[in-house]
């Protein structure tokens, strides 16, 4: 766990921080990447997470955390550029492609991810995942939405409610 010259985070060789997932796996990442998380940012600014003592994240398991960090590492350079005003179209397209692939995952992972993004307050990831869930809802009939999102089939009374509702907002389902 050699944390190379944690120093004051003054550029230099990138400062590393250690994050510890709920199942005690340690992840070492650049401070810049971890700082995408608003929750972690202050801790990192205060010099936490360096050296041997990591930042424990009891809400996030290792599988999810590795996924989150994958996102952070990819997006850290662009974020460091301050919203990347001078990023080339190629870079942006590349990020977009990455994002698209990134959320192309199993739903249960997606929900872990959404929860982790929420807890860690990673703005970009939050909206990315929210958008993904929204995409799963878009352009579907209520029953399809239920199936896609894995809700159980409606009970008869729910079904009756649904019918009444669809009668009321009939045009919204056209």
């Amino acid at each position: 766990m050699a944390a190379p010259e944690s120093g004051d985070g003054n550029n230099g060789a990138a400062r590393m921080v250690t994050l510890i997932s709920s199942d005690n796996t340690r992840f070492e990442v650049e401070a810049a990447a971890a700082s995408l998380s608003q929750t972690l940012q202050l801790t990192i600014l205060d010099g936490g997470g360096g050296g041997g003592d990591g930042i424990p994240l009891p809400n996030v398991d290792s599988a999810t955390l590795s996924k989150v960090l994958e996102y952070c590492i990819k997006h850290a350079p662009a974020a460091a550029n301050g919203g990347a005003p001078n990023a080339t179209a190629v870079d942006r397209a590349e990020l977009e492609r990455f994002d698209n692939e990134f959320v192309n995952i199993d739903q249960s992972v997606l929900y872990s991810l959404i929860m982790a993004a929420h807890n860690l307050e990673i703005e970009g990831l939050q909206s990315l995942v929210a958008k993904k869930v929204a995409d799963m809802i878009k352009g579907k009939s209520p029953m399809e939405i239920r199936r896609t999102l894995g809700f159980p089939d409606p009970t008869p009374e729910e079904q009756a409610e649904m019918n009444a509702h669809m009668l009321e907002y009939g045009w919204a389902y056209e």
Partner: peptide, 19 residues
């Protein structure tokens, strides 16, 4: 709510059948 932000109103209304 964040998820709903990405939906148009008439898409969002369908979700009220979920629960």
């Amino acid at each position: 709510l964040r998820v709903l932000c990405h939906l148009k109103a008439w898409e969002a209304v369908r979700t009220c059948l979920l629960s």
